[in-house]
Simulated assay, not measured.
Amino acid sequence: MAEATEPTGIRHFRTLFISDVHLGSKAAQAELLVDFLRRHDAETMYLVGDIIDGWRLRRSWHFPQPHNDVVQKILRKARKGCRVVYIPGNHDEFLRDFPGEHFGGIEVKMNATHVTADGRRFLIMHGDEFDVVVRNARVLAYLGDWAYDAAIILNSLFNTVRRRLGFPYWSFSAWAKLKVKNAVNFIGAFEEALAEEAHRQDCDGVICGHIHHALIGERAGIVYINTGDWVESCTAVAERHDGAFELIRWTEVMGPIAMPLKAVGASLETNHRARAAEAA
């Protein structure tokens, strides 16, 4: 069954997964996320870490109105009955001191297990727990964060020119990740580690963020889903009412200039009964 679409054009899903918004960073594409939240509703929403960028806010305060609008949009959805679960990441790790607490109707959890409409179990976690640099070389992580800021600023300037020429958004950082051998190896190792953890916890799949590389795929019989980010790719993952997943790339939907909403994405169906039979 496809997702419901209201007469207003709002798409309604069973579950939405969003991560790596980095509110407080100048690179956060808050306006696009506000527009996405305006056009999408769900029964449950998982905020899969790095929604607020505490690292950058500690360096200098930057929280303009569009960033506040994102917070207000999420709080409003919670007030209207959407279950909102916030799983902190490394950039908003200050919230890891409050597991089980509720803030404005938003529940904070270290990680979660989500059961889809078709009965599959998914481990939900940010993923920085499996990033060796973040765990064991904090100074390098901060230096890498500064370098990433510089790359994003250059990317923003480049895309300003592209938009004026009528070209769609293009991410240099995302392109580099797929071209640089070490980055490709890191992504592969990260995906394998998350899949192994999901298998260890007897789950059919894992949904994470952290590496800003959106994907719906499979690793060793485990469904691997990364929600991407709202700095470069502007992506979210949605669970339809039949349990199938869809990857939504909002910059492709909207184009270089706001365009009528259209459905995009890819879904992946897995046979969890076969996995259960194999394990038995």
Rank of each mutant, 00 (worst) to 15 (best):
T235L: 08
R240C: 14
A198I: 03
G243C: 09
I222Q: 01
L95M: 14
V21I: 14
G81C: 08
C208H: 02
L157I: 11
A112H: 13
S267E: 11
A220D: 15
H212A: 00
D204Q: 10
V180C: 07
G105H: 00
N185A: 11
T270C: 06
G119Q: 12
R162G: 00
D131F: 02
R240W: 00
V48L: 14
R76F: 07
R14W: 03
R39P: 01
D69R: 15
M110K: 13
C203G: 04
H91M: 01
G105Q: 03
R83F: 00
H272N: 06
W61I: 05
Y169R: 14
L33H: 09
R38C: 06
A183Y: 07
W146G: 10
A2V: 08
V71Q: 07
F172E: 11
N159F: 06
F17G: 01
L268H: 11
A27L: 13
G255M: 13
D204V: 04
H67M: 12
A238F: 12
A220Q: 11
I257E: 07
T235C: 12
E129R: 07
H213N: 06
D145H: 15
S25R: 15
L123M: 12
I207H: 01
M1Q: 13
V253P: 02
E31Y: 00
F36T: 05
E93D: 15
R11E: 07
L143F: 09
M125N: 05
E246N: 08
I248H: 09
A112P: 02
A258G: 04
D131P: 02
G24V: 00
E191S: 06
R58N: 13
R11T: 10
N136Y: 12
G54I: 10
V70I: 04
C82Y: 08
C82T: 15
I222L: 05
R56K: 11
V184Y: 15
R121Y: 06
N226Y: 00
A274D: 06
A174V: 07
K26T: 14
R14S: 15
N155R: 04
H126P: 01
F13K: 10
A266R: 14
A279V: 12
Y86M: 08
G243D: 04
L261Q: 13
I216Y: 01
G24S: 06
R96D: 14
V115P: 03
H40N: 15
W230S: 11
P99V: 03
N68H: 08
F122M: 09
R38G: 08
L165Y: 09
E197C: 05
A274G: 04
N226W: 00
I187F: 06
R249D: 10
